[in-house]
């Protein structure tokens, strides 16, 4: 993953609440077996309306999206984060995010910045003609004249973002601890292991609803 320390540029001043993942990327785009190319389907329904914010030349290619409460609610599809990344969005600023989406965003180097609604309201106005800067070093969102808003970020996620760390690789280095846990589990809760006995699934006729 590419390290991210700063996202700066124009921002889509959208402000929409409860943006669900079906809006970010409709289900028919989910048939891909790749991560790339989903930008074409991003916000497809919104974009079908004339004069929509995503096709407004003032904001074309903006690296930042400003949204309302509960951004990314709905399904767990990481395609939503891939679609945003593919259309060039590197950060989303909103009063709240769905738990699953914020995890997916982080894993794709997209910064999910939580700011209170008052700050969002101000940014929505400012962003119509001024750039916005998100700095992970100082944990601030700044605009040229009006403002400076501080935010917090989970320390681990911040470090992963700033150093571009491979989380799977990090956890694989904990192999000894995981193996130790598995041994203890095998003693305490042996029924969790499916290695013996039940491993072969799906014997015809054995099932009930």
């Amino acid at each position: 993953m590419e390290p991210v320390t700063r996202v700066s540029g124009s921002a889509y001043p959208w402000g929409q609440k409860n943006v669900d993942t079906d809006v970010i990327i409709p289900a028919h785009w989910l048939k891909t077996i790749k991560r790339s190319g989903l930008g074409r389907g991003a916000f497809e329904t919104v974009r079908s309306a004339p004069g929509n914010i995503f096709d407004d030349p003032r904001y074309a290619g903006s690296p930042i999206l400003i949204a309302g409460d509960n951004f990314g609610c709905g399904s767990s599809r990481e395609h939503a984060a891939w679609a945003l990344a593919d259309m060039g969005v590197r950060a989303v600023i909103a009063p709240s995010f769905s738990d699953i989406f914020s995890g997916n965003a982080f894993k794709n180097g997209i910064v999910a910045v939580v700011l209170p609604q008052e700050a969002i309201d101000r940014l929505l106005v400012v962003a119509t003609d001024q750039p916005v800067t998100i700095d992970l070093e100082t944990m601030t969102v700044t605009t040229p004249f009006q403002g400076r808003f501080t935010f917090t970020l989970d320390p681990f996620r911040r470090r992963c973002l700033m150093e571009g760390l491979d989380e799977v690789g990090l956890t694989l280095s904990k192999d000894t601890a995981i193996s130790k846990f598995e041994e203890a589990m095998h003693q305490q809760r042996p029924w969790i292991d499916q290695r013996s006995g039940n491993a072969g699934i799906a014997v015809e006729g054995a099932g009930r609803t």
Partner: peptide
């Protein structure tokens, strides 16, 4: 029981764990 994204699916396949708060 909870839903996860594809990067987490990969994390679980590889490590059988997740980092969670």
């Amino acid at each position: 029981a909870f839903g996860i994204g594809t990067s987490e699916v990969e994390h679980v396949l590889a490590t059988q764990t997740l980092i969670l708060s």
